[in-house]
């Protein structure tokens, strides 16, 4: 699971009003290189919850993202490189996502979060 996906996921357990961001528990992570595409980054930037991305990338041992970001920064190649790396190249392989409201644990195994709900959570 990339941090792009983590940034979009939100707990949908019945009754939960604010399921975002899911707390990230990392047991194992990997890096995979991908080509940087500035257009993709510019298109996705407005949809990113920046603080959640900063916190998640720090949890993965990548402290390079600035605390705040605004669209004008997308003109800086240095910024794009860091944004790209945090968003698309860091993967959580083993660990868990934890619902901020209920504490329910969604395990991540082989990079795949298990988001299946029990019947009483739907």
């Amino acid at each position: 699971m990339r941090l792009l996906t983590h940034n979009m996921l939100s707990s949908n357990i019945k009754g939960v009003t604010n399921g975002f961001p899911l707390r990230l528990q990392v047991e194992k992570s990997v890096e995979k290189e991908v080509d940087l595409n500035p257009d993709f980054l510019k298109n996705i930037f407005p949809k990113i919850e920046w603080k959640a991305l900063v916190d998640a990338s720090r949890a993965l041992g990548y402290p390079e993202l600035p605390d705040e970001a605004e669209p004008s920064m997308l003109d800086s190649h240095d910024f794009l490189k860091k944004f790209h790396h945090a968003l698309l190249e860091l993967h959580v392989e083993e660990g868990a996502l934890i619902c901020p409201e209920t504490g329910r644990n969604f395990p991540i195994s082989k990079g795949i979060p298990n988001m299946l709900l029990h019947e009483d959570e739907v």
Partner: peptide, 25 residues
Amino acid sequence: LEREVDGDLLLADMGQGLALRPGVI
């Protein structure tokens, strides 16, 4: 996973409502 697809995968039931923030896709 074996086929090393590029997308991220979720084990989830589409009938349970998608665990994604609104307006991001």
